[in-house]
Design a protein around this nucleic acid. Structure first.
Ligand SMILES: [Zn+2]
Ligand SMILES: [Zn+2]
Ligand SMILES: [Zn+2]
Ligand SMILES: [Zn+2]
Lengths: 165, 165
DNA sequence: CGACATAGTGTTATATTATAACGTAACTTA
DNA sequence: TAAGTTACGTTATAATATAACACTATGTCG
């Protein structure tokens, strides 16, 4: 297993996730400051909800969490979608198309194409970068100019296979 | 350009699409007969609507087309989704996750993972098979058991780039 | 400071995509 | 033909996403 694979697949292994959270939130702050963007409290709230795990959440799950935490408020979907839009535009989160869900990016700011392994059992998602030039080179041969890639591989991670599900 | 790439990228080139339609419908009939499955008239209608082009259509586009053609009927969504479910299960069509849309498969019955290049300009979609072992081998190294893959690359095809859009 | 421009938020309503539940019709097999 | 099964039709509703518009906060320049 290459070091890169090891880092990328952290979601499938036990690890100190507090460390992920702190690190990624800190990187998000730095990145926004560098780009003169406002990581407002709404945006930060939504990001923190996604940083809580390596599992993707639907927009309405995030909405429910916001409404749960601050039970005085009654937040509307548009608010969540706007925060998600900002976070995606800045590469702080990704959309998982095959789940209509969103997940925090594990290397914010890298603008290369992300690719995911999604365990349908534990729902953990591992994010990879660019380890997959095959189709891209075929696109190149065809003169096809790539904008955006969606690569989402669903299956069962090694841990979950052990537990004999 | 390899022969395989040439065949797969037919969507991006002028070609006799009538031939595609006849061929694919015929293959669908044979496949259903071989598997003792019923390609009922509803299922055939939905398949034919998708065979009309190499563009993906939303379930409600298909519904509108059904209701347009036979203007006496007033068909409900569930009917379309059921036909789509059957056609997907048999590998006669694919779902394009990043578009919430469906497209006819260009090599029905092959059960290998399909991968798509999607032109965001002409909306043509080229379907490839398995030219992309990179991520799959990474999955293998991790002991990740792959079930289903979603590989959808959006961009602009060579033709559309020429037209200077 | 105060007028302005801009970006972000809150709110309401609505659009789009998908499924559940249940009864009827059509096919299959004995 | 009767029973069992598969497919269809219908109604209602769930889940996901966006449009439109008013209000608020922030930054900027005189
Ligand atoms: Zn972590
Ligand atoms: Zn797992
Ligand atoms: Zn064709
Ligand atoms: Zn094109």
């Amino acid at each position: 297993m290459s070091p890169k694979t090891e880092t990328s697949a952290i979601a499938f292994r036990k690890h100190d996730h507090r460390r992920c959270q702190r690190q990624l939130l800190s990187e998000a702050r730095q990145l926004c400051e560098a780009r003169k963007l406002r990581l407002t409290s709404r945006r930060r709230q939504v990001l923190e909800i996604l940083l809580a795990s390596h599992q993707p959440l639907g927009a309405y799950d995030i909405l429910a969490e916001l409404n749960r935490v601050d039970s005085a408020e009654r937040i509307a979907p548009a608010i969540v979608y706007r925060a998600l839009e900002f976070l995606m535009a800045e590469g702080l989160i990704h959309r998982i198309e095959s789940r209509n869900a969103f997940i925090s990016c594990i290397h914010p700011g890298h603008h290369s194409a992300a690719q995911f392994l999604i365990c349908r059992d534990c729902e953990q998602v591992a994010e990879f970068e660019n380890i997959d030039p095959g189709l891209l080179s075929a696109a190149d041969n065809l003169g096809f100019a790539v904008d955006h890639s969606v690569v989402e591989i669903t299956g069962v991670c090694a841990e979950c296979q052990k537990h004999g599900d």
